[in-house]
């Protein structure tokens, strides 16, 4: 039971950080810059692609650690 609760808490925490990173306040603070270019795209675009990847990984872990 505590394992399930920990998993839910961690995923909830991830969602909070993720939402805050998709706009104000974390995106302007850390993400919205042109340099460095990564894979040819400016960092501000890479930031969003990166969060799409992280969100996928987080949900994958959440899904795999769930009951059944």
């Amino acid at each position: 039971m505590t394992g399930v609760r920990l998993r839910n808490r961690l995923y909830g925490l991830f969602l909070l950080v993720c939402v805050a990173s998709l706009g104000w306040p974390i995106y302007p603070l850390l993400g919205s810059r042109i340099e460095p270019f990564i894979l040819g795209v400016p960092f501000s675009l890479f930031w969003m692609i990166g969060w799409a990847g992280l969100s996928f990984l987080a949900l994958l872990i959440y899904d795999r650690t769930g009951p059944r």
Binding site: V19, L22, W24, Y27, P28, G31, S32, I34
Partner: peptide, 26 residues
Amino acid sequence: PELLLAPGLDAAGEVWSWGEFTSAVL
């Protein structure tokens, strides 16, 4: 360079606000 920095521009070509950008995402 202004085109590559979030929150980008609004329809009139002025700098968009973070409030609009963030709330649109939400």
